[in-house]
Amino acid sequence: MDVIVIGGGVAGAASAIALRRIGAQVTVYEAHADPAGQVGSFLSLASNGLRGLDALGCLEAVRQAGFAVPDQRMWAGSGKLLGEVPRGRRSNDPTLSTTLMRGHLVEALREHAQRAGARIVTGRRLVGATPVGHGVRAEFADGSSEHADLLVGADGLWSTTRSILDPDTPRPVYAGLYSVSGIAEGVPAAPGTFNMVFARNGAFLHVPAPDGTVWWSAQVADRRQPDLTGVDNDQWLHRLADLYRFERQPHAIIQATTRLHRPTLMHTLATVPTWHNDHIVLVGDAAHPVGAGQGASMAIEDAVTLAQTLAKAPTTGAALADYDRLRRARVGKMAKTAAGNRDAKTTGPIKRRLNDLIMPIVFRHFFDRATAWLYTHDLGTLPTPTQDTRLPRP
């Protein structure tokens, strides 16, 4: 089976690894000249995402690129501790959440995909896809085209593949939040703890790194979509220091910042009705940008599940239908959870005070049980690279 993967980020690289594990010939086409590099800020992989990496055979490589974060603390803007829970896992799970820069995750996955035999081609942007016989022809902006049995759209929130599958597909809309992230030095912080502050003007996340720096991200609530261009780093830091002037720890971290990442708008996407046809399928944010710190983990789960269904089903079309069935309910539930998290970051003062009263009870008595469905998900395994794996007929 010849497979084209569109997008060289987390979803694309993970899909390439998984598909090589079942014997497919895989070429990844990435629109950017370098799909890795230090683009974006940090992310965390929860226990479910780490089990997905274990199935792909690259768990240790990713762990070495980041650091373990066992615990998470939620704080009110006043400085009151609302709750302390295990970070990205159940309390009895020894698999500790891993935090790392997004670029380092992409680099680790891409390197593993290339070692597994996947080919990565950069600077090629998909513009169309046409059914041809028992396969599909991918058409690129430079006028070239390539034929394959399967095209995997791993091209993110602004997916071209999604629009090719369904020209009437939903479009991303501004979520009422934008994110500014950075690295601070010289600020005391408890090691091994991910912190989330529910501030007046949006959430503020921060986690101490092993080198003594503090990685942070301000998710600023703003109903009107801001213009993020033309503002330099000093202006951003001055603006953020003013927005978080009421919260002691966030304000101190912002003032101690030595490196700032590019600000980004946060978006939501309505349920995508069409994830696949007989020879094209969506994975990761192209199908379901879930948020709530689960974007990378869900993309990894997608990759593993897609390869598993292709290894078992009699035809490609049947495999893609199985993949859709197996993934929709889970990511739909995750999307609802993410919407609740997003609402908590943009709430007004009255509801924020109510949350300050309710959240300690929720975290103390219900959190572990309420997140069991997410963190205990059993993906199963993939064939080892040496196994003779049967692939579906086109």
Rank of each mutant, 00 (worst) to 15 (best):
I4G: 12
I4C: 02
I6C: 06
V10Q: 02
V10C: 01
I22M: 04
V28D: 10
Y29C: 11
A31H: 10
A31P: 01
A33N: 15
V39L: 15
S47K: 01
N48Q: 12
L50N: 02
R51F: 09
R51E: 03
R51P: 08
L56G: 02
C58N: 03
A61C: 00
V62W: 05
R63K: 13
Q64M: 07
D71P: 13
Q72S: 07
G77F: 09
G77W: 03
S78Y: 11
S78N: 00
E84G: 15
P86A: 11
R87Q: 08
R87T: 12
S91D: 14
S91F: 14
D93I: 07
D93N: 09
L96P: 03
R102Q: 10
V106H: 08
V106T: 09
A108V: 08
H112N: 04
A113F: 09
G123T: 05
P131Y: 10
P131W: 04
V136N: 11
R137Q: 14
A141Y: 09
D142Q: 08
G143P: 04
E146C: 10
A148L: 03
A148V: 08
G153A: 04
D155S: 01
W158E: 00
S159G: 03
T161S: 12
R162S: 00
L165H: 02
L165G: 05
L165K: 08
T169G: 11
Y174V: 04
G176L: 00
A184W: 06
V187W: 03
A190R: 12
G192S: 07
T193F: 07
T193W: 11
M196L: 09
V197C: 07
F198I: 06
A199F: 06
A203Q: 03
D211T: 07
T213D: 07
V220S: 08
A221K: 05
D222F: 00
R223P: 05
L228W: 00
T229F: 04
V231R: 12
D234N: 15
D234V: 07
W236R: 13
H238C: 08
R239G: 02
R239L: 13
R239Q: 13
D242Y: 13
Y244L: 04
Q249I: 15
H251V: 10
T258A: 14
R262H: 13
P263E: 06
L265H: 10
H267A: 00
H267E: 01
L269Q: 06
T271W: 15
N277D: 15
I280S: 11
V283P: 11
G284S: 05
P289S: 01
P289K: 00
G291Q: 02
G293I: 04
A299T: 01
I300Y: 11
D302N: 15
T305M: 12
T305G: 03
A313I: 12
T315D: 06
T316S: 05
T316Q: 12
A318S: 15
A318D: 13
L320T: 06
L320Y: 06
D322A: 14
L326R: 10
R327N: 05
A329E: 08
G332A: 06
K336Y: 03
T337A: 01
G340Y: 01
G340D: 01
T347P: 09
K351F: 14
I361N: 04
I361A: 02
F367M: 05
A370C: 07
Y375F: 10
Y375E: 01
T376Q: 05
L379D: 08
G380A: 05
P385Q: 09
L391K: 13
P392L: 11
